[in-house]
Amino acid sequence: MSDTPVDRAATATPPRVARKIKGLSDRAIAWIFVGPTIFLLLAINIFPLIWTIKLSFTNFKANRIGREVKNIGFRNYERILTDSDIWLNMQATAHFLFWTIFFQVLIGFTLAYLINKKFKGNDLWTTIIVLPMMLSPAVVGNFWKFLYQPQIGLFNYVVAFFTGKDPSSFEMLGSVQLAPWSIVIVDTWMWTPFVMLICLAGLRSIPDYIYEAAEVDRASKLRQFFTITIPMVLPFLMLAVLFRGIENFKMFDLVVQLTGGGPGSTTELTSINLKREAFEKWRTGYASAYAIILFVTVFGLASIYVKALNKVKER
């Protein structure tokens, strides 16, 4: 009699359970294992999604339970897509998304490239750099609010030191021109380490012998960088962009702490606006349609992106 782990596991099955399972097919056993997960998925994800789609065609308000709920067709969708204020929110979100990802990739990759070089204190620097990422967004939002304070904020004094301007002559959070950049700066400060870590993993996955072979072929450092480093890190980099893109599309806490969506609606990202519609104005039907539009947008963009990512990986 063999004594493989499978045999040991089989003998360990209690006789009562074994008798019960004996009559079941492999497919039935598979369903028993997968069933609870599928049930939870349906209950927590799929059902609310279907319910949200249903609500998006009504004038339902969650705070007015006794009110008659009318089916209003595509009216909510029409109102959202023709509302110029919502397009401004979308524009603010796109600005935030593009520039945060741009700076995070640029700085994150540069940091990873430098950290990847072997030097004294390498580990210490890595730990210091990833610290912002470990903080709570609410804490980061609050202390950057102080840093940006025109009268006592360190940020204004640093800028004033280099430009010779009066520190209280400009308001990072109160100016329509500067506020969108102020949130980009904070998000970049906080999440660049995340991109750096992923890039670092990519850089360290490149085997040394590839560079050695390139050296033998007398390839310059620049050539090695563009023909070895970049292509081999690219799938990692794209993954980081995907993660940050999805995260920043639904950015809420950090920006609420910093600007509350202001001045005016300059930094009112779609997630902030959606929260106001759903849980402050209680326009549940309208907010459901809004959520579906955003869901389709993110899902569509993410699908296209994942396809591109897979193509890069296949190369």
């Binding site: 204020d85 329509v176 609606s265 104005k281």
Partner: peptide, 23 residues
Amino acid sequence: EPAYAELLLAMQKRIHDYVVADQ
């Protein structure tokens, strides 16, 4: 009104847009 929150948030937006954001 029962819809006071919607009325209030609309005013918050329009006034802040004009007074603070210069729109």
